[in-house]
Nucleic acid binder design. Sequence first.
DNA 1: TCTGGATGTTCAT
DNA 2: TGAACCTCCAGAG
Length: 268
Amino acid sequence: MPEGHILHRLANEHRRLFGGHPVAVSSPQGRFADGAKLLDGQVLERAEADGKHLFLGFPAGWLHIHLGLYGGYTFGASPAPDPVGLIRLRLEGEEHYADLRGPNTCELLTPAEKDAVHARLGPDPLRADADPDRAWDRISRSRTTVAALLMDQKVLAGVGNVYRAEVLFRHGIDPHRAGRELRRAEWLGIWEDLAALMAEGAAIGRIDTVRPEHTPEAMGRPPRVDDHGGEVYVYRRAGQGCLVCGTEVRTEEHAARNLFWCPRCQRR
DNA sequence: TCTGGATGTTCAT
DNA sequence: TGAACCTCCAGAG
C-alpha cells in the first residue's frame, strides 16, 4: 500500500536486514533476470527513498524500484520458501529474504540516471534535505487545484491519495481551491503536518491521521474499521458521517483519482 | 470462476 | 483525457 512513508520504511528495512552484506539476488518470475544476474552476490551498500522511489545501492549500480499501484514487499526469515505467485525480485541474505511483487519499475541505474530521477521530483517531506519553498514556488503560482498539486510528484514527492485527503481535512482546506489561493502560512502548516504524519506512518507502517480528541472513543461513537489499517477522517469514507461534524463525507473523481472531503469542515 | 477495483505513473492523442 | 501496465483479492454469481 505504497505512499512515500512505506518507501522510507522499506529503505530502513533493507538497511537493517541486508546492509553491508552480500545478498543473493534472483528474479523467480524472470522479468528482471538480467539485472538480478548482475547484482547476485554483491554487497548492499546503500538504501534510500525519495518520494515513492526506492534506491538500493550495489557496486554494479543503483537498483531503482517503484511499486506503482499494487507493488508490494514480503519479508521473512531465511531460507526463503519456494516462490508463490509472481516474484519479480528476491533478495536473500543469511538470515532474511525479501520478495518484491508487481512493481511498476524494477531497473538498474547508473548514478547519473539516479540523479535524473531525483531531479524530476519535488521535495519529499521525509527527507532531511527537502525544501518546502521549492514546492511553494509551484503551488503559489498555480491555477490547478490544491488536490491535484499535492498529488503531483514534480511539486511534492511522496504524498498519495490517502495523505492528500487527510492533510487537507486536518487543515480545513477545500480540495478544490487553486494553489495560488493558498496562503503561505497554510502551506507551511500542511508541509509540517505531512512531515510529522508521514514520519509516524513510516515508523508504524500504516496511516493514522485522526487526532486523539476525534477518535470514536473520545467522541463516544462506535469504532470504525479501515481496511487499510489506520484510522482516517475522510479517505474512502464517502457516505459516512464526518468524524468531527457528522456531515456526509463526499467523493468525486478528480484528475482521474478518487477524492474525499467533508464539505462542511473544509471550506474555500 | 469471474469481475472490478486499488494508496501510481507514463505515454499517446 | 484515456488507455495501458504491474498483481492481488474481495465480492458477486
